[in-house]
Amino acid sequence: MPVLTLAAVRDVRQLSASVWKMTLYSPELARPAKPGQFVHIKCGEGNFLRRPISVCNAQGDTLTLVFERKGAGTRYLSERRAGEKLDILGPLGNGFELRKGRYLLVGGGIGVPPLLYAAKSAESADAVLGFRTKDAVILEDEFRAACGEVTVATDDGSYGTYGTIAAPLREMLASGGYAGVLACGPRAMLRAVAEICAEHSVPCQVSMEERMGCGVGACLVCACKTREGGARAMRRVCKDGPVFWAEEVCW
């Protein structure tokens, strides 16, 4: 059951050129939040729509959000100060389904933060994290603390493994023993992860992104085309997702 609440900002800090981390005090949001869910935040008077931001972590009464400053809404969020309150609807959406066993987390860019809460919630986890370049790398220490093996890859080779997440993902899947893969990142990356997981017969869950309206599943603007059995369907990213089984998504 989502709630509409005023959450107190505890801290806002910049993690990279375009990424900010916000810590909020909100028992109503933090306690029920599950990995892969998101919250829908009112961003001042000038931005009509709320902004959906994934839960990066929820511990006790504290909710952590990590977001990219892309436009006016996320700029507003990045400019909040400790003590201010934000009007937030949440927690929303269908998160990751975690069972027993070891999970492999695959994140790309701003798709990395939502996997941190999954890492902390899984029985055990390894991670492959992809970024454009060294300066864009975020949350590496947090993942190293929460995971067993962590591989960081950069597209330009300026840090960690050179190239995309594909090669390290293949290597780690070949070593076997994963209960599943949880992935979040750009659509092209998710598609590649889905294909690699299919090759290795490892169940894969992907967290999809789409422009949203209501955030609760009523307005049908955030559609993701899926197939269920033989039938194609338009599922709601905000309600049926954002996490879908990779084999259901029509890429």
Binding site: E210, R211, M212, L220, C222, A223, C224, M234
Partner: peptide, 11 residues
């Protein structure tokens, strides 16, 4: 099925 996304733009 409706139209393909994106289906919303802020104004």
């Amino acid at each position: 099925l409706g139209n393909p996304p994106p289906r919303i733009a802020e104004t």
